[in-house]
Design a protein around this nucleic acid. Sequence first.
DNA 1: AGGACGAGATTGTAGGACAATCCAGCGAAG
DNA 2: CTTCGCTGGATTGTCCTACAATCTCGTCCT
Lengths: 239, 239
Amino acid sequence: MTGSGAHGGGRRTMGTHPPDGRPSAVDRVVATVRSGVRDGRFAPGQRLVEADLMRELGIGRNTLREALSRLSSDGLVTIAPHRGASVRRLTRTEVEQLYELREVLEGLAARLAALHINTPGHRDRLLAALDAVQETARTAEMPQYIDENLRFHRTVVEMSGHTRLLELVDQLQLQTFRVQFRSAAAHDRTGMRGFSVSEHQSLAEAILAGDAEQAENIMRTHLRHTGSSILQLPDSDFA
Amino acid sequence: MTGSGAHGGGRRTMGTHPPDGRPSAVDRVVATVRSGVRDGRFAPGQRLVEADLMRELGIGRNTLREALSRLSSDGLVTIAPHRGASVRRLTRTEVEQLYELREVLEGLAARLAALHINTPGHRDRLLAALDAVQETARTAEMPQYIDENLRFHRTVVEMSGHTRLLELVDQLQLQTFRVQFRSAAAHDRTGMRGFSVSEHQSLAEAILAGDAEQAENIMRTHLRHTGSSILQLPDSDFA
DNA sequence: AGGACGAGATTGTAGGACAATCCAGCGAAG
DNA sequence: CTTCGCTGGATTGTCCTACAATCTCGTCCT
């Protein structure tokens, strides 16, 4: 999500603001940096110097600082006193811990999703998401496949009906996106896709059957697999 | 942990080593508002007007806005566009969801704490925390008892060695503090203290025994009890 | 060479300005 | 009398400038 979006020539004459229908300047900056981190325009460890970003994005310092502050709360960048912001680089331990969190949180989400499976529209949404994953698993390139993959997970969390949980999981997914990408690229020829797809399928079946216990278990197992596959990456992929 | 900005907010100014002596102005404001919400100086729903707080705290608008922004990411205040910040009021559903989160997160913490029980110093810290709870349960007034109670939970989470988990749980505890307080006050004469204390004791025993499974179960059960006791509060305590 | 020193870069904070937006109160219309 | 629309004040969103504090790094002196 947060697709490339059409943000044309950024530095229009300041002064005029979009007619509120839409994101505040801070929101736009946050979204821009987020997607920038996602698609590698900002590399992990890279420093984000205020003056540069101000020029680049055509915004004032307050706005930028508020955006960076928010990104830091989300864990996507770190801010060191008097040294400024930089794109966060995760250590191996941190990745491990993030996956421990995803395990319990998305496990809860799967459980709740199973409990709410009879909410109108839920069945269709889940089936559609599963279909999309299976389709892109066969045909699409890696970036798209990963995207669809995350969307499937996100759908499950949305179906939990737990707004706070959705926020937390979104954060965690964003933070783990880069390493997840590298891991997926590295394991792609070892049949990982098929394995992952089959886990997704069993998960969907459990949820559709309303089997909360089973859904939670599958989700947790699945994330444990994903996590440990990521942890096999060489040291160069961590801080 | 009342007041004293010992743990500066999110992962913002946490250099690995403390090269800077004092908390930044933003940190001080965040800590001030936090403790203000805790001890009722700021009531839930109350609006936090920038001009007032600027005068009251003697700081500039940038600093204040950055602090409010961070507090909003922590979920302690809400910021509505063009309406500013106000102390967050939780709905019944939100409280329920927060306790679902605490259940899985602190459950994980208890499990990890049990696994790490042999780390030097851990046994003593846990025993000290348990002792403090039991002591204040007998002798102290409600605010102090609740404080010690939270400190006990926090100790368990610290012993998990999972820094991100600690941050999340801290957030959740802060958000639920208010209702937790009212609930405790309401149930105090129904022997709730003794019940809670005995659960804490079994939890400590399970952790000390290194029984991760049992520790997680007790923690989760305990939080489920706490949560449902809070949900018995009348509607007037919710948004 | 090694360490002290200073110049430039960068951030932290204050404070002013102005447009956009919200809100309460008032008056007109039904 | 109630409802609707308008206006003016209050408040926020964003920009800007300024300056002190702090960090970085190259230079110079011993």
